[in-house]
Simulated assay, not measured.
Amino acid sequence: MNRRHFLQYAGAVALSSQFPFAWADTPSPITIYGPGALPSLLLGVAKQRQQQGLSVIQETFNVETWRTPDVLRAGLANGSIQASIVPSYVAVNLANRGLDVKLVNIMTWGLVDIVGSAGSISSLKDLEGRSVAVPLRNDMPDLVLQALCKLQGVDFKKIKINYTATPAESMAYWLKDRVEFAVLNEPLTSVALMRGKSKSPERVLNLREIWRDLHDGNSQGLPQAGLLVSSAFYEQNREFLQHFQSELSSSLDWSLANTAEAAKIGSKLLDIPSPAIKAAIPHANLTVAAAADIREDLELFFKTLYDMNPQILGGSMPKDNFILSL
């Protein structure tokens, strides 16, 4: 990736919350929203497959990326957004604060890694006394790191945390040697490895694997984000949602088998250079797991966050009807 593409990418990550993308070929009452992150790639692939006549979905639908978490919350509250990929803990929080919303699926088993110089650490315990850039305080990367440290008996207060306002800023801290390590989501992790070759970089800790090891392999991973819908949207579009879930699974299979082509679609939707997306796809743990089929994984993750601070989930564990059975 050359410097121009890198700067374009870093700007896209920092500003994607300000400049949304809309993919709409025909007027349609159905719009699926997503963040400027890798799970939204599957929305773009599903849309293109429909345009090519390869989809099981008969209804036309549009795809848009939302601007900021505040825009997402406001859109769900006023009804302008009725279906969107969201961080899983945000979904529970919104439901517990009175929004009539349901979780349809999970679309990644973990996007978070810690980047550093090869061989520099082998466990979270090794981070004590070391400097780490962490984006978005009290958001998913930070919460995952705190949860894993607590489960492993690591003193989080002994880690020299440098919080940043954006993921791109955390990456820049590491690239400029302001910190020894950075907690990053894909595809930023892949970009950091490309840009930091002189630092002998690697994913020094895979947080999904740490989570799985802590639970003796009985968990599939960290259910970080999934599709949330309003109850009204579900009632009006039951058949569409059933077909959409199936189409997302087909889109995932196609994306994993055709990473170069999928990366081009993702680049258009996410405004991120396709080489970064192609490199990230194998490490993003993308999935299309029906929420009703993975209740134990969800409850384990949510209980871990609840035990840290109930307010992360809006004060309580999710109600039974929060998980949608299509």
Rank of each mutant, 00 (worst) to 15 (best):
M1H: 07
N2I: 06
R4L: 10
F6T: 06
S16I: 12
D25I: 03
I30K: 06
I32A: 07
S40C: 11
L41Q: 15
K47F: 10
K47E: 08
Q48Y: 15
L54Y: 11
V56W: 01
I57E: 04
Q58W: 06
V63M: 02
R67A: 14
T68R: 08
P69D: 14
R73M: 12
A74S: 13
N78D: 15
S84F: 03
V86H: 02
N93C: 10
R97K: 09
V101S: 00
W109I: 03
D113C: 02
D113S: 15
G116E: 03
A118D: 05
S120A: 13
I121M: 04
L124I: 00
A133Y: 08
R137G: 10
P141C: 11
L143G: 00
V144P: 03
V144R: 02
L145M: 12
A147W: 04
A147S: 12
L148K: 02
D155I: 14
F156T: 07
K160H: 14
I161K: 14
A165I: 09
A168E: 13
S170V: 13
Y173R: 10
K176A: 15
A182I: 04
L184M: 09
L184C: 08
P187I: 06
L188V: 09
L188A: 02
T189F: 01
T189D: 02
R195Y: 04
R195G: 14
G196D: 05
S200R: 06
L207Y: 11
R208I: 01
I210K: 07
N218P: 00
S219P: 10
S219R: 15
P223S: 06
G226Y: 01
S230P: 02
A232I: 09
Y234L: 15
Y234R: 09
Q236S: 08
Q236H: 15
N237M: 09
E239F: 13
E239T: 12
Q245V: 10
S246R: 09
W254V: 12
N258S: 02
T259A: 08
E261M: 04
S267H: 01
L269C: 05
D271K: 12
D271H: 05
S274E: 13
I277N: 00
A279Q: 08
I281S: 05
P282M: 09
H283K: 08
A284K: 00
A292C: 05
F302H: 04
P310F: 03
I323E: 04
L324K: 08
S325R: 08
